[in-house]
């Protein structure tokens, strides 16, 4: 019902754009249209996130599901719930089931690498989202982590220059993940040029706010004059923020994340100084485009090797405006 309406709309747009000049009244059939829909009919997209239930994966999943529904594709989610082992099981099982595309969100750069290679050898297109693995599959869609790392470090450098202790803590998520290795590299790029900044701690919060809370409160106790914290994921960094709040000290917390409403709220409240965001909705659309591309190309899996970096969005008090962030709550509607 809905898809037919959309198809109608697409047809209308097509007819208007190219051929409308001659044939306003009866219209002309687009010969590629039927092929286009036939390409996708009955195809299966499988999504293996690190976990569902967080803003990023819920956002991507909802965008992908919409397109899949529209094009008559099957969209499946295999939720390993933060367990790399279960994720590996899921991918192993998927290889046997042979969906057309697997969209993978890697927990670290290595765990799935062999499996993804196997999947492409089995003829399944593999799209990696945001967290890449050591194996370069057909498509990588995701944030430019090195750029984000640089921007985050720069923001902290700006705040912790002369007149402060210059002490900075880095709160990683999971050092072996595709995102952290990039962000760490980016941060290094900037910090190496600023000898006045001392990195007093560089620890992993394992994507867990509670652990982040313990780590940062320890760091603050050890370094009461801490100036800034570079956090690698906003959801986890809320724990760090709570530790900062408990200490009552004016510590700058810069983070990165998916730009969900929570980020805007917390920037507004001053909990986060800045968030360097990758926009989940845009990433979802990129994912959709790439899924369509690999399927339409008809190429063998593992040939394409495309990379799509998502643009950065800086959320700070200066850039803040209504509608800047997306809301996970609206996804359900």
């Amino acid at each position: 019902m809905k898809s037919s309406k959309i198809a109608l709309a697409v047809a209308t747009v097509l007819s208007l754009s190219g051929i409308a000049a001659h044939a306003v009244a009866q219209g002309i059939d687009d010969p590629r249209r039927a092929d286009y829909f036939k390409t996708f009919e009955g195809k299966t997209i499988a999504f293996v996130p690190v976990t569902m239930g967080i803003d990023l994966t819920e956002g991507w999943a909802s965008v992908m599901k919409k397109q899949a529904d529209r094009l008559g594709m099957k969209f499946e989610i295999r939720d390993p719930q933060f367990s790399a082992d279960r994720g590996a099981e899921a991918i192993t099982a998927l290889i046997a089931e042979k969906p057309d595309v697997i969209v993978v969100h890697n927990p670290d750069v290595q765990s799935y690498a062999k499996l993804l290679k196997r999947a492409e050898e089995a003829g399944i297109h593999v799209v990696q989202i945001n967290m890449r693995s050591n194996y370069n599959s057909d498509v990588y869609v995701g944030a430019d982590w090195i750029g984000i790392g640089e921007a985050e470090a720069q923001a902290v450098v700006d705040k912790c220059g002369a007149g402060t202790s210059g002490k900075v803590a880095i709160l990683q998520g999971q050092p072996t993940s595709g995102s952290d290795s990039g962000m760490m590299k980016g941060a290094d790029n900037v910090l190496s040029k600023h000898p006045e900044i001392k990195v007093v701690a560089n620890q992993a919060g394992e994507w867990d706010a509670t652990k982040a809370h313990s780590v940062i409160s320890t760091v603050i106790q050890q370094n009461p004059d801490l100036c800034g914290v570079i956090g690698f994921w906003d959801v986890m960094d809320l724990g760090a923020a709570a530790a900062i709040k408990e200490s009552g000290k004016p510590i700058v917390l810069v983070t990165s994340g998916g730009g969900e409403q929570m980020a805007c709220d917390n920037v507004e409240k001053g909990v986060f100084e800045k968030e360097i965001a990758y926009q989940v909705m845009d990433q979802g659309r990129d994912l959709n485009d790439m899924i369509v591309t690999v399927l339409e190309s008809g190429q063998q899996a593992g040939k394409l090797k495309a990379v799509v970096y998502s643009p950065q969005l800086v959320i700070s008090k200066e850039t803040l405006r209504p509608g800047l962030c997306w809301s996970a709550k609206d996804l359900k509607k």
């Binding site: 933060f82 367990s83 790399a84 082992d85 590996a88 927990p107 670290d108 290595q110 765990s111 799935y112 690498a113 062999k114 499996l115 999971q174 072996t176 992993a204 394992e206």
Partner: peptide, 15 residues
């Protein structure tokens, strides 16, 4: 065996 199969050293292994 797990190491040989996945070669991944993550913090959630065996939790």
């Amino acid at each position: 065996l797990y190491a040989a199969r996945l070669s991944g050293a993550g913090p959630d292994t065996g939790i």
